[in-house]
């Protein structure tokens, strides 16, 4: 058989070949990302550390994300309260607004919204910064100056991610609940004291810890996806732009997937 017959003609892609190469490409990518993750975690939990870099990243990732996290949480909490009130009123269950708002915020929405907002703000930002360092040879320069990029660049971002996300989520939880409270007391006729008492009485530690465990995982995902795509960024403005896009999209999808996975593992479905 001639060689030509095994190759698809130009412009007419063979769907099986496309599927095969896409699958292989995806497996190779998962492999590379796993190795990168292993190296980053290894560097994060063994000396030497760069404390100044960790603090700098905690400020960049944590502190400067407060406005976006706070604003997102207050609107989500407010909208949630409105929807539960409207939906609940169909079967006379309006009084459950505080309970469902606090459950929805602490278990799901607080952490998911924080994670998704930070996938945009932080993951893409890290990818662009590391990508720019890659294409201007700063990462090579680090190595020639005897600094390991995994220790100097990636571990501080990873540690800052897993340490600050739980704090941000806790703040998002509180602000989200307060958003629901504000709408309920000002617009829906709830009594402020009763609303808050219902919230606090209904809330269990488990609801909060499930959210915080998710936050730690999401913090790691956000940092690692940013570092990974920045590190393998190709030259030029397009290369860095693509790195930022891939980091943001990858982090967002992984956050939603891990959210489901952790819920499956941690939520008690028993009686």
């Amino acid at each position: 058989m001639s060689n030509a017959s095994t190759k698809p003609k130009a412009g007419v892609p063979n769907p099986l070949q496309w599927l095969g190469s896409a699958t292989l490409g995806m497996l190779a990518e998962i492999g590379r990302l796993s190795i990168f993750t292993g190296k980053t975690i290894g560097a994060s939990f063994s000396p030497r550390w760069y404390p100044a870099q960790i603090i700098r990243q905690m400020i960049a990732i944590g502190f400067y994300s407060l406005p976006v996290v706070g604003l997102s949480a207050v609107f989500i909490g407010a909208a949630l309260a409105l929807n539960i009130y409207s939906g609940g009123s169909r079967f006379g269950a309006e009084q459950f607004v505080p309970n469902i708002v606090v459950l929805g915020i602490t278990r799901e929405l607080g952490v998911t919204i924080t994670g998704l907002m930070l996938a945009g703000r932080v993951s893409a930002g890290i990818a662009a910064e590391i990508g720019a360092m890659r294409v201007t040879e700063q990462i090579d320069a680090l190595k020639t100056l005897s600094a390991n990029p995994f220790r100097y660049l990636y571990a501080p971002r990873f540690l800052a991610g897993i340490l600050t996300l739980p704090i941000l989520v806790l703040i998002a939880d509180i602000i989200g609940v307060m958003g629901g409270w504000a709408v309920s007391t000002m617009g829906l006729g709830f009594d402020s004291t009763t609303y808050l008492r219902n919230t606090v009485d209904f809330l269990t530690w488990e609801d909060v810890t499930v959210g915080l465990i998710k936050a730690v995982v999401f913090g790691g995902v956000i940092a690692i996806l940013g570092c990974y795509h920045g590190d393998k960024s190709s030259a030029g403005a397009t290369g860095v732009g693509r790195a930022a896009t891939f980091a943001m999209v990858g982090a967002a999808v992984l956050i939603l997937a891990f959210n489901y996975l952790i819920s499956t593992l941690l939520v008690d479905f028993g009686s």
Binding site: Y50, M133, T136, E137, Q138, D140, A141, L142, K143, T144, L145, S146, A147, Y152
Partner: peptide, 30 residues
């Protein structure tokens, strides 16, 4: 690498650090 110096084409200075911190990078970190 401690016995080698390198001048990169684009200088490859770390833009998050000051000029002197760039020069002293190895002295400070290694």
């Amino acid at each position: 690498r401690a016995r080698i110096g390198m001048l990169f084409q684009s200088a490859a200075l770390f833009d998050s650090l000051t000029v002197w911190e760039n020069i002293a990078f190895r002295l400070l970190n290694s």
